[in-house]
Design a protein around this nucleic acid. Structure first.
Lengths: 186, 186
DNA sequence: GTCTATACCTGGATAGAC
DNA sequence: GTCTATCCAGGTATAGAC
């Protein structure tokens, strides 16, 4: 199992394809052709497709953690931080529009496949949940912090799903505004 | 192309499998073995897998339409009707828990596959949307009826996705209550 | 570490006997 | 209408040469 540049590229490409095409729909041929290595060579780096998935989930967990940390560094108040989360609906709109929310769609796909890594994928949701809970706690809402975190999570999930289905940027913009307004009333 | 009992059974089984396993993950072998016919025979009834999908979407559209009509017959007020919609989260919890929302998950899968029938599947969302809009209009909220309909749709979508990911019935119950309370304040 | 070749299986789809 | 046999493409995975 390599740990070098090629392996890194494989995970990067797989991450992208799993998001855009779905895990199951992505083949070894898809990945290897984009990395410019042979199919057989892929197996030198990863024994199975499930191994690639685990590596992808790990990368997503790390990337999410870094994003959350950088939001905390940039935002002055907890509300600023939470708004950074809300606004990814717009920041990533060009992707969400076509492929939905990367977290939600992976979790639902793995749920249907009854995949062994389903629990790992769910951890990405948990990461967001606990971070949001922390922000609401800092806001002085310790008692209802988890419920508020879930509220923000589910709101954005719903908007991502419907924004994707109806391909409606205007709607997403309105909802993002509503969410920010709602947050300001807290 | 047959129109008899077998064809009906095929669509019924495919409907169930597409929901539980996903469209792509469901094979002709899966369907034919459950209908107790040979794989080859399946092709007597449907030329392609996409044809089966179209038939399934059609059935779902019809079923949804009937459900909406029966809600109107049962509910005395528009709020009763909307609550019938909200409560499917609990009525169908044993399925949502494992496989998510049948409408949302099909739409996101077809979006990733860039499937020709994506637009057809989205019509199920539209059916709910327009029916909800009608209910809010009757409630005397004509001007904001569509926005309210989208609000209800996205709220339930978000709750279904997170309820599925965290396998949390208690959370779903709380959200259903919150949605009903919110509706009562309108 | 990288590549080719290849085994093996499953899936979608067709042809033709009954 | 139903079946078997079969084709072909594509997918996962392995062996072994370089």
């Amino acid at each position: 199992m390599g740990h070098g540049l090629t392996r890194h590229q494989i995970v990067e490409v797989a991450d992208d394809l799993f998001y855009r095409q779905g895990f199951e729909h992505t083949s070894f041929a898809d990945i290897s052709s984009l990395v410019n290595i042979s199919r057989g060579n892929l197996y030198h780096h990863f024994k199975t497709k499930d191994d690639i998935l685990d590596a992808v989930i790990n990368v997503r967990l790390n990337r999410t953690q870094h994003m959350l940390t950088s939001w905390e560094e940039q935002g002055k108040t907890p509300k600023d931080c939470i708004k950074s989360y809300i606004k990814i609906l717009l920041t990533n709109w060009s992707m969400i529009r076509n492929y939905g929310c990367p977290v939600g769609t992976l979790c639902t796909e793995l749920a249907k496949l009854n995949h062994a890594s389903k629990a790992e994928a769910n951890k990405i949701f948990t990461l967001f949940r606990e971070w949001l809970r922390g922000q609401f706690t800092e806001l002085g809402r310790a008692q209802e912090a988890d419920a508020l975190a879930m509220r923000v999570l589910s709101w954005s999930q719903g908007v991502a799903t419907l924004g994707n289905a109806f391909d409606d940027l205007k709607y997403v913009k309105q909802e993002v505004e509503k969410m920010c307004d709602w947050l300001d009333t807290l």
